[in-house]
């Protein structure tokens, strides 16, 4: 088995995913509409209610829209990660996943390819969102748009790996509604995407702890600092550790001898 085989297969899987994404215009539009509504409607409405103190990486008072933007990029990646997971469950139900799993490649490699493909799609969405936000006068320093890329890659991989892990547990597409209620909403609302930690601490000590240890929060902070050209080491280490944990668990979940696949079997 040559390196060329691996590269060709990776290009095949990533290329297919990107092509599908470009073809499915509704998916692209809906992926953008969600954060834009939050930005144009929710954030604008709360602009005067939620005052933001000066806290790193910001060096001056900022509007709520500016604060919420990295959180909404996180939201794009969170939904994208879950969308990839939904696609995996759908593909498994429809059978097209079988073609992938019976190809002569290690399963971990196939999962990594799927993960890279999903992350690439989410980065594309994030940059389009940032472009629209620019015209809405939410503008970060130019170099921030470059530094955000590695943060987006790591955050996308972490959330995608979480999605893969969930997909190894979800047997049917119908159960996916549960993911919305039990994973997406808690991760998003119990995080620093919408409000800073110090503000959460004022309301509830428990919520503060939950938000602090929420990997989604750490991913959002990594993005927030990167957008202003700064490196948040703690957030980086936490996000990386979460990614490694999720991907290892997902690979185990998809390994025939160890994971959920056998237990899911049936005629």
């Amino acid at each position: 088995m040559s390196l060329l085989h691996f590269l060709r297969a990776m290009w095949g899987i990533v290329g297919r995913e990107l092509w599908r994404f470009i073809q499915q215009k509704e998916r692209f539009i809906s992926a953008l509409v969600r954060p834009l509504i939050w930005l144009f409607v929710f954030a604008a409405g709360f602009r005067n209610t939620l005052g933001m103190a000066i806290a790193p990486p910001y060096e001056t008072y900022i509007l709520y829209e500016v604060y919420i933007t990295p959180g909404l990029i996180g939201m794009i990646q969170l939904f994208n990660g879950m969308q990839s997971s939904l696609t995996m469950v759908y593909d498994r139900e429809m059978g097209s996943m079988r073609i992938l799993l019976v190809s002569p490649l290690p399963r971990w490699f196939l999962l990594i390819c799927k993960l890279i493909a999903g992350t690439a799609v989410s980065i594309l969405q994030a940059y389009v969102f940032l472009g629209i936000a620019w015209f809405y006068e939410i503008q970060a320093p130019i170099q921030g748009y470059f530094w955000i890329l590695p943060a987006l890659i790591l955050d996308g991989l972490m959330l995608g790996a979480l999605g893969l892990l969930l997909s190894s547990f979800i047997r049917q597409l119908e159960n996916f509604a549960g993911v919305m209620n039990f994973v997406i909403f808690p991760l998003f609302f119990m995080s620093t995407a919408l409000y800073p930690l110090w503000k959460i601490q004022e309301s509830s000590a428990l919520l503060y702890k939950l938000a602090m240890y929420n990997p989604f929060s750490q991913g959002v902070e990594l993005i927030r600092f990167a957008l202003y050209g700064q490196f948040n080491q703690d957030a980086f280490i936490y996000t990386l550790a979460a990614f490694i944990t999720f991907i290892i668990a997902a690979i185990i979940g998809y390994t025939p001898s160890k994971g959920m696949m056998t237990r899911k079997g049936g005629e």
Binding site: M1, H5, R8, W19, G95, S96, R98, I99, S103, P104
Partner: peptide, 24 residues
């Protein structure tokens, strides 16, 4: 397989190329 495992939104050639890529 018993169920169709083709990608309905891709062309015949694209589906076959995807499989060829998986086999290197």
């Amino acid at each position: 397989f018993q169920q169709t495992t083709l990608d309905l939104d891709l062309t015949v050639t694209q589906n076959l190329r995807y499989h060829a890529a998986l086999h290197g």
